[in-house]
Amino acid sequence: MTTFLGNLDESKLKKLKEKVSLSFKMPIDHSKDWEKCSLISNFFADYCVSSFYKKKEIKSILSTIINELIENAMKHSYQDQNEINIFLKNCEKEIIFITENIATNDTANNLIHTLNQLQTKDIESLIINRMKNNLMYNQEQSEIGLLNIIHNFKTSISAKITPIDKTNLNIVEIITRLEHGQ
């Protein structure tokens, strides 16, 4: 069954993806193509800000957000199906990013857990706790990427998780919306 988290429904999501301002799709190998993350996020940011007035600041914010989203998608991609699809929709008052990747059930459940935590807890203390735990248990991943962008840039995040028949894999879509003043 498809899981929806956050406040964006199916029809809205479909409409968003039909006509995107920009989208980019590529198989990305975690170990080999890491630098491409930064390259792609800077490009999306540049593309987006060329129509803005306060370019420098917005570029920095957008690049930071997209980079975390792509890193997140890349780290949580199932190794044999590592294509990542990134969508950008430039609306009048908000910028919407959607990242799409294939993930295992475990990974998808982790995401659901994180997003559910957001509803109830103070995000800042969640981040600080994760930082502390990270050192204590010497975790390999930082696990604060999504939390950080929600907390720092007043973005809202929703997600759609669609199981792929007869596998333990899912299509994970993360929808990030950022309001802007211009």
Binding site: L22, M26, P27
Partner: peptide, 11 residues
């Protein structure tokens, strides 16, 4: 290497 880009010409 393979990738695909979608865009709106108006943009």
């Amino acid at each position: 290497l393979n990738f695909q880009m979608k865009f709106l010409p108006t943009d």
